[in-house]
Design a protein around this nucleic acid. Structure first.
Lengths: 130, 130
DNA sequence: GTAACTGCAAAATATTTGCATCCTT
DNA sequence: AAGGATGCAAATATTTTGCAGTTAC
């Protein structure tokens, strides 16, 4: 694919992600930008960001994609092998700046990526229960 | 929900899963049982099996669900915290009978489940490349 | 000016729900 | 006989594709 361009719509999507602590779904972003741009465009922008290595895609425990800016990645070290967390109560997904060690695999297997998702209860939701 | 019943359709789905080394998608099962039963029934059976704790659901790197019989689980120890593997070439998903240690979480988080998926190349596909 | 980007419409997929009928218990 | 299970139709949800018009470079 040829060089990508900087557009107003991409800026808007980027800003939404930049202002979020957590990883956002396509739907989260669509709602944040209520009416400001087409759903399809958002699909394409997210896909583009991922191809460029600007964002990570995290699959949650229900199979939905959440996107987050790669804050802890450098250009040389992009592999998405850090832990992610999803709260079973509020559903929020975020990145736990913590790397996963490469596991010892059985004979004959090679490792490319590691997806590590912990589900549980986040501090905010625990507080709500007190 | 009330007690579940044993039916011919459930038997069929179970046998397909029992005869498979890997975790199967809804579509894999539908194709194995080509025409023998309705797609919707298979959705419901898989969902039922999962609720009963008879099968695990593994979400792959594309967000698709793969189901596998819990071979390594006892009744008391069902939590799905063992490693899974998906081959990037053939797409097969299987369970690497190996448990994941509970990670040290930041203050305030509780852990319920761990989903650990390694992607890479399986022995069969590596052989094909030789 | 060229090629990427966008928005709208529509197609393709995937999953769920309603309901009449069937079958296990 | 009662209530869960099934099959069919249809609704809902999600993502992708095609294409004409727009815009960044």
């Amino acid at each position: 694919m040829a060089k990508k361009r900087n557009t107003k719509t991409k800026e808007l999507v980027w800003k939404v992600m930049e202002n979020s602590e957590s990883a956002l779904t396509h739907d989260d972003i669509t709602q944040s930008l209520r009416g400001e741009m087409d759903r399809v465009t958002i699909y394409r922008i997210l896909q583009g960001f991922e191809e460029e290595g600007l964002v990570h895609k995290v699959i949650d425990s229900a199979g939905k994609s959440h996107y987050a800016i790669c804050r802890h990645c450098t250009e040389h070290h992009h592999h998405d092998n850090h832990m992610h967390f999803q709260c079973v109560t509020c559903g929020v997904v975020n990145c736990l700046d913590k790397e996963v060690r490469k596991p010892n695999m059985p004979e004959g297997y090679t490792v490319e990526e590691i997806n590590y998702l912990v589900t549980g209860c986040c501090p905010d939701c625990r507080d709500d229960k007190d």
